[in-house]
């Protein structure tokens, strides 16, 4: 099918863009990479009155490392993040997850800000933002604010972003050396995940415990942080305890919401995804 009619606006600055959002609110959709919005328009799942094309806002494209933070502009395309060697070095989780995002032609065009703003529950980037403790920066005419990833994803395609706000950047804290694991189960490579897990492990300081952050995605209406699982991982050092970890993961997921469809099967997929993600941590702590 073809996209429905809409009014097409193309701002040249963030100020102009947020003024347009203030004027049109819920009736407007921001067009970034378009790799989700365009199919939704073509299939008429979305029919906004106004489309605000932000592709000329080059100030929102790019990656900067400043004062212990990596800031990725909302308009930065997946392919450009993958090609940046600093990401592989400082945010290896993103480097591991990005090859799972669709296919090369989609990654050439799709943007990280678009993925976070859409908040598809099976998408990779929201789960990584949770596991990495990212902060999401929003702009409106009233000013700018930063929201923790764990406070940002509220439900199915639902986020803490207000209608008059635009997602402009993602800030990832750089916390020193980490080990990461990422795995997802999908019907075909590049499809949305049926179940997935993202793991970040900070090595133990002298006399302390390692710190884990574990995100699950593709299972509920939003990605979630598996906090109980992370605690158990930090306290468990032997392979025999893997079963405790996986049981905790199931409990974390079930406590966070109802799984649609065949819950038993999906929990088995979730366990498998987490186990494979944990096995990628080197040297394997479990």
């Amino acid at each position: 099918m073809k996209a429905p009619r809409f009014q097409y606006l193309r701002p040249d600055s963030v100020e102009e863009a947020v003024a347009m959002l203030a004027a049109h609110g819920d009736a407007a959709q921001i067009l970034a990479g378009g790799q989700s919005l365009m199919p939704m328009l073509n299939m008429r799942v979305a029919s906004p009155d106004v489309v605000i094309d932000i592709n000329r806002l080059q100030a929102l494209a790019g990656i900067a490392f400043v004062d212990g933070w990596c800031t990725v502009g909302a308009l930065t395309r997946y392919a450009d993040i993958m090609a940046d060697g600093r990401i592989a070095q400082h945010l290896p989780l993103l480097a591991m997850a990005l090859p799972y995002v669709a296919h090369s032609a989609i990654r050439n065009r799709g943007t990280i800000g678009g993925s976070l703003a859409l908040a598809d529950p099976a998408a990779e980037m929201p789960a990584c933002a949770l596991a990495l403790g990212a902060e999401i920066e929003l702009a409106s005419q009233a000013g700018r604010r930063r929201v923790l990833a764990q406070d940002f994803f509220l439900g199915l395609y639902e986020t803490a972003r207000q209608a008059e706000e635009m997602l402009i950047a993602i800030h990832y804290p750089i916390v020193g050396p980490v080990q990461c694991g990422f795995y997802e189960i999908a019907r075909r490579h590049g499809d949305f995940a049926l179940a997935g897990a993202a793991v970040v492990r900070r090595p133990a300081p002298a006399g302390g415990l390692p710190e884990y952050r574990i995100a699950a995605f593709g299972l509920l209406d939003r990605p979630i942080l598996a906090t109980r699982t992370a605690e158990i991982c930090a306290n468990v050092q032997t392979a025999e305890r893997m079963n405790d970890v996986l049981s905790a993961f199931e409990a974390d997921i079930c406590a966070a919401g109802d799984i649609q469809g065949d819950a038993r099967t999906r929990l088995i997929w979730a366990r498998t995804a987490l186990q494979r993600a944990l096995e990628q941590l080197a040297p394997s702590p479990l």
Binding site: Q35, M38, N42, D53, N55, A79, N108, R109
Partner: peptide, 19 residues
Amino acid sequence: CTLLVDRRAVRGCLMLAAQ
């Protein structure tokens, strides 16, 4: 519909001509 825009392969159905 994949074609090259600014030398990168993209989906022709997922861009507006206006873009």
